[in-house]
């Protein structure tokens, strides 16, 4: 049971069944595109896969061990980016990322963070409080974690939101690069992925009444 496996997942939100007995496998070298209308439970599914929330029934395992268990090693091998940027608005980009790297046990130097911020197009904006940045720039700061943490499994919730055309191209190229190096990605998105992102498998979630 290699990879991230969801087994018979059932999720109930506000007494509404979002999905029942859902089976999903994400293995290395795969880009999984999670599709579905608003309210179908895409975000809920991603949060269940990370272990942030717990399913009504069913299990999520990583390499055969429960994701929430420390010995699964899931937290070191994974990276989740949700709707919320995870950036403190009063701190600047550099501090935000350096604290985040320390928390996630990623040894980085200041120079590495500068390099990554330069690559995502944020030169000269490193030391302004994040709340002064535009929505797209904030998203770029949040996404720069993909360059910093050497995680294999990426779980991304609407990563393209607020990005401009260049940003989307950059991110899709990064997807392609990551998957070709044996990484695994599960992502939701409102726009379909372009060919730049490489080959991908589509997983559809339906809206249930």
């Amino acid at each position: 049971m290699a990879g991230l496996v969801a087994n018979a997942l059932t999720c109930i939100k506000r007494d509404r069944i979002l999905f029942e007995n859902l089976e999903l496998t994400l293995s290395q070298g795969e880009l999984l595109y999670l599709r579905g209308p608003n309210g179908a439970g895409k975000t809920s599914l991603l949060r269940l896969l990370t272990g942030l929330s717990l399913p009504e029934s069913g299990t999520v395992t990583f390499n055969g061990t429960d994701v929430g268990a420390p010995q699964s090693g899931f937290y070191d091998a994974s990276l989740y980016l949700g709707h919320k940027s995870g950036l403190s608005s009063t701190l600047n980009a550099l501090d935000n990322l350096s604290y985040w790297c320390a928390q996630h046990n990623v040894p980085v130097s200041k120079h590495m963070i500068y390099d990554v911020l330069e690559r995502v197009g944020l030169v000269g904006l490193e030391d302004i409080p994040v709340r002064m940045l535009s929505a797209g720039q904030q998203r770029r700061v949040a996404l720069s974690r993909l360059w910093l943490k050497p995680a294999t499994f990426w779980l991304l919730d609407e990563p393209f939101t607020a990005l401009d055309i260049d940003g989307i191209a950059l991110l899709e190229a990064k997807f392609h690069d990551h998957v070709s190096k044996g990484g695994a990605i599960i992502t939701t998105s409102h726009q379909p992925l372009s060919t730049r992102a490489g080959q991908h498998r589509v997983f559809d979630l339906e809206y249930r009444f």
């Binding site: 942030l52 420390p70 937290y75 070191d76 949700g82 919320k84 950036l87 046990n105």
Partner: peptide
């Protein structure tokens, strides 16, 4: 609110 907490909870 800004999601830092969920990132911390996923840090291990």
């Amino acid at each position: 609110q800004d999601g830092s907490l969920e990132q911390m909870m996923l840090s291990g």
